[in-house]
């Protein structure tokens, strides 16, 4: 019954897959994300994180007041490299504190 009930549609993560991760001892959102791939697709966890949190609480695997979603990282919206590239020159070139190269990297 759990093989086609989806928690994360972006990466096709079903309840069955969450069960497998839990069976291996992984019970935090960060761990389950990294074992199942949940939350790593186009929506970056917007649709599934709450549902996963709910599942962990309902099964007694996590305390509601101790739960946190995985680290919020930019971009919250997909953004093109072309647009980002355009910001490079005016935004950063004039900054005086830019260091040429303190490290010996190429």
């Amino acid at each position: 019954m759990t093989a086609r009930a989806f928690l994360c549609r972006c990466e096709d993560v079903t309840l069955g897959e969450i069960d497998r991760a839990i069976d291996r001892g992984l019970t935090t959102i960060e761990e389950i994300k990294r074992y199942t791939g949940l939350g790593t697709g186009p929506c970056q966890g917007k649709e599934c994180t709450g549902a996963l949190a709910r599942l962990l609480v309902d099964r007694g695997l996590a305390r509601a007041d101790a739960l946190q979603p995985f680290t919020a990282r930019p971009p919250a919206e997909p953004i093109t490299l072309g647009l980002l590239a355009a910001a490079r020159a005016p935004f950063f070139a004039a900054r005086p504190e830019e260091d040429p190269d303190p490290k010996d990297t190429p």
Binding site: P74, P75, P78, I79, T80, L81, G82, L84, A85, A87
Partner: peptide, 26 residues
């Protein structure tokens, strides 16, 4: 953002087709 804009400028110059490519997570 400094990382994102620096790498975007470098990458789109080296591989122009990536101008329309979208960043999903940094």
């Amino acid at each position: 953002l400094r990382f994102l804009t620096t790498i975007a400028a470098t990458l789109t110059a080296l591989m122009p087709i990536t101008a329309g490519l979208k960043v999903l997570r940094q």
